[in-house]
Nucleic acid binder design. Structure first.
Lengths: 209, 209, 209, 209
DNA sequence: TATGAATGAGAATTCATTCAT
DNA sequence: CATGAATGAATTCTCATTCAT
């Protein structure tokens, strides 16, 4: 195998992935625009520039498109967040970083955010078998920071990480929902991240004497 | 108009309301169980013990059932909350009361909670014309408490009520979502309400010197 | 309940049956014309003068139409045959009567014959679960006559009814297939019935000394 | 043209035939297993170990595969039968030989038998233009024996060969259908061939005085 | 020749809604 | 008011066939 054939194979591989990727991206736009149930497979096909039948070469069925989309996007979000958090050592800074990164990711990718916001909720019902592992991992990043802070004595020991992770995520999430669903953005990201993480941080921190 | 006809009309009115109510309640159960899009009008009719066609004597279409359901259930939730808050004068106690009442309402009526959780998010997209006024009012109860606290000097003046109301609601909402979607309840209501309102209260309060 | 309401209910009952019956009859014509797989449900609906969806009020799916059709037509054929055979006491005459009645039924109802001829064969594969009881009963009418004839000493005792019933039916069936599939009829019914039953009767009878 | 190129072309010819043959054989198995309409071209391709597109280098379309299959298999059956019959001079023995050979061929090649059994019937409808010449020839082998027997005075002159050939074939065919469709074999070939040909022979023979 | 990814026409089935009774 | 049979538009998915490589 010479280099040129290698390149050709690589190109073919890329093109193949390309179609899978194009469908995922088209689906992201269409699901965000119409919601899962009102999105037609033919809408996605048209948006992706492929024939209806082609969708079924890459996905088992419509549900599978949504599940794959989740998996891939959540993996990206998770990787991004882990990478962002790794830059901070201090649990306090980490939590603030989480808020900032989360809201930034939402802002940069409204469509994905909207799908995760809206369809994520649907999903647990209509895809009973689908266990949203990645989302649980994402929440646990928060719980880990809190536990770390508790060990370091900066967060109060009576904070229950299992509740606090949800409270913190929920606060950020509701803020994003507001952005995603309303067209205009009343408050800017830094302000929102700053506010939310500061309430929360003060709320869970060991009171200074 | 004589009394007997008056009674008759009253009875008819009652019966009409009765059927309207039965349909709303049936829809609440069915939507909670299957979600809006997967719920069939005939499912609701069967659950309500009426004929399919009868639904259309009380509602314009399937969307209208969901909208009416929202309106009515949100009105009840709102009334409940307003009544619960009126018993407290102190903004700090009010916020704690809000958390406790919210989570109690969720717990007492899982079906409504699930619909508000899940379908509320869908609604704003698939029913473009529907402005969820009541939900905005519900959130504004929180903003009002915060503003009141700021005026009384107990909450920090740099807190932005428009952000804080979402953060607080989001924290509670994510906690309820966890309850609604998971079968078992890991943490009890009082604990959760206590934790969440305490983070938040400490977070937004004027630091004690 | 007065007579008029009784009549009304009867009429409704009839109309209801009527639609079921109309669909069966339409399906008979369409299946005969195109075969099961090439018959579209919408063809049947059009032929029956109902909407596509109406079919599904009376039948579970396309397969169910075919199965119902078999059941009903085979029941009619079976009843007819039993009635025809009951008029004869002599096994020899009974077998001849069987041939004549079978070919007459085929001739009178070419569509049904064609479906039974053609789709019956398909059926056992694509409808694995469908056990064609009636057809087995039909064949057993022949076996019963043969056994009766053996007991009376007119048919040879070494004839195996399980083989003979198939041989006799097969002979008649191939003859009908020829009629059904070819447009013109080269030989008339009485001749064919006469020939076939005479070969067979002489073949299985105890040789006269 | 030199020898080497001749050899090459011959090899190519062989390879071509080879692939043609492999597809036919694969189709035989697949059609027998699923029936024509439910067999996918890609099933056949996989079974034959070729790509889907390759099928279309050897056959015009799916129908053409079935027609070719009939032609080839029927030719083989026909040749086999002619060869088997040529060993007998006596019309009586020939008929018995026919029964035995027919049932043996069925038994040796269940797949072909099943296709001929089942799809043969479909074929005349869905492939209007296809005249099943070979099958007609096969039936005429029987008619020829009968006519020969009549000329030799062993078969009754009033037997109509056109009817008798169908009766005889039908008897054998129904017996094979039973074998093909039921998994177990209740009666053995020799017994069945013996019974059927003996009924028939006695049935059409000139009565011995 | 051989491939197999891509196509897109086609078909079964569903279900919100209507309307005659 | 109430019914529920009937409607038919809409949608997912399949698969024979093509064609660029």
């Amino acid at each position: 195998m010479n280099e040129s054939s290698f390149i050709t194979m690589e190109a073919m591989e890329k093109r193949k992935n390309d179609k899978h990727q194009r469908i995922i991206e088209a689906a992201t736009r269409i699901f965000a625009r119409k919601g899962f149930f009102q999105a037609k497979v033919s809408d996605i096909a048209r948006e992706a520039g492929v024939a209806d039948g082609t969708i079924y070469l890459y996905f088992d069925n419509k549900d599978d498109i949504l599940i794959s989309l989740f998996e891939e996007q959540m993996k990206a979000v998770l990787d991004n967040m882990i990478s962002a958090l790794s830059k901070e050592a201090d649990p306090v800074k980490k939590l603030h970083q989480f808020a900032l990164t989360h809201l930034s990711l939402i802002e940069e990718n409204k469509n994905v955010a909207e799908i995760i916001q809206v369809e994520l909720r649907q999903s647990s019902r209509f895809m009973k078998e689908y266990k949203n592992e990645r989302f649980a991992q994402y929440l646990d990043l928060i719980a880990d920071i809190i536990r770390e802070g508790q060990q370091k004595g900066v967060f109060a020991p009576d904070i229950i990480p299992g509740i606090a992770k949800r409270a913190f995520f929920g606060a950020l999430d509701e803020m994003s929902r507001f952005w995603v669903l309303s067209s205009r953005k009343e408050y800017d990201i830094r302000t929102a991240a700053q506010q939310i993480s500061s309430y929360f941080l003060r709320g869970i921190s060991v009171p200074r004497t």
